[in-house]
Nucleic acid binder design. Structure first.
Lengths: 228, 228
DNA sequence: TAATCGATAAATACAGTATATCGCCATGAG
DNA sequence: CTCATGGCGATATACTGTATTTATCGATTA
């Protein structure tokens, strides 16, 4: 019997902590979507009984909050540009990129207030960049308006992406995509404008469309902030 | 023994159909939120075994889609204004009002493409109002940008509303609201801009804030459509 | 050193979920 | 009257989040 045969010492599993739990949950979600995240599976991945988790989190919703905050660490850029507009734009794009990396984030975005440390840091950076540009109310309105836009835009993008993926390849032409239903609807002639849009519409790159809408909103914000 | 004593004929439960199922589900969701909607409860409310539902819907997600589309019937206004801008504004406000009536809609908004007949009718009306104002790509961008805004804004509003409700009364001052956590965070001094915002911020009426942001976005859209 | 105590982890338990499958029963046709 | 078909109910499975109880193990004290 050599050392190699000797069984490993019981290697008591690495001590549990929130970080490891959240990391496991995120891995699970990255692989199989939010619905693949169950406390049991998270626990299993950590080689631990399900109830162990309740020593570190008190509910599943709290775990989701922690996951969202964790991703916000990816969203906060290491160095901020000077220009307020660039700060807002980059925040939007980084949020979008993070969501493309972690699609499940789309399901959580805007669903609950984000009060974790990383999310707060992101907000802080944003507010700091706009500080003094106008009265506080206007600044808040600006931040929230841009936030509302990119939140909604990202959610829609992911929703469409999933729909395309689910119905097999197909882009903006819902027609074949969503099966006979929409086709039939359009054929009724009750939706001429929509039919025309579906028929004549170019399907623009998602990122371009996102960026364009964002720029429009930023233009509007610039006017209101008195920075045009 | 009078007619009144005579037992009712067995009143075999009204024949099931999607409408009744969706109505029951909406009622349930209005009362207890989306999480109160389970196929079992919906079935119970219709005095029917859970499996009966699968003759009319094929999955719970499909039921949610139907619920969303049903609410879109409330969103489509009976008569459309002439002005494209008014059309967009009213769509946004009606969506918001519908969501305030059916808070669960916030959880579903933007989560999946809305392809039901009522949702399509809403889209149709919107596109028709913007038809010809600019090239199709620009019009689509306009509709989607406004849609992204109000979707995101409504979700955030409902999220905040719930948070306030859950933490007991308290408005924009998260501080006491979200417990000691945020207070501690702010006290660290790592978030000066945020602290200032929390401290000096007026808490504006949600509807006003929604309308203001919307107007900003509409202004931007007007410019891009060449209608200023 | 022995024994007791306290905390920590594990196992079990419970109520509820979406959905698949099977068997009955009633109503229609032949 | 018989038979078949198809809707309907009950049952079954594999999970879920979470509460509660049981076991285990380390540290402290006698």
């Amino acid at each position: 019997m050599t050392v190699w045969d000797r069984p490993e010492p019981p290697t008591r599993p690495a001590p549990l902590d929130r970080e490891r739990i959240v990391a496991a949950a995120i891995a699970l979600a990255d692989e199989g979507g939010l619905e693949a995240v169950s406390l049991r599976k998270v626990a299993a991945r950590l080689d631990v009984g399900p109830m162990r988790l309740y020593g570190y989190i008190s509910t599943k919703e709290e775990l989701f909050d922690l996951m969202v905050d964790e991703v916000h660490a990816e969203i906060l850029p290491e160095e901020q540009p000077r220009d307020w507009r660039e700060v807002l734009r980059i925040r939007a794009h980084r949020t979008r990129q993070a969501t493309l990396r972690h699609e499940w984030l789309a399901d959580l975005l805007g669903g609950r207030p984000t009060l974790g440390p990383n999310a707060l840091a992101v907000t802080e950076a944003t507010l700091a960049a706009l500080d003094g540009l106008a009265d506080l109310d206007t600044v808040m309105r600006a931040v929230e308006t841009v936030g509302a836009y990119f939140t909604g835009a990202i959610r829609r993008e992911i929703a469409n992406l999933r729909a395309e993926r689910a119905t097999g390849l197909s882009k903006l032409d819902w027609q074949r995509a969503s099966g006979p239903h929409v086709t039939r609807m359009l054929a009724t002639g009750r939706f001429p404008a929509l039919a025309k849009a579906v028929h004549d519409g170019t399907d623009v790159d998602a990122e371009v469309s996102f960026a364009t809408g964002l720029d429009w909103v930023l233009d509007a914000v610039a006017v209101k902030l008195g920075c045009e």
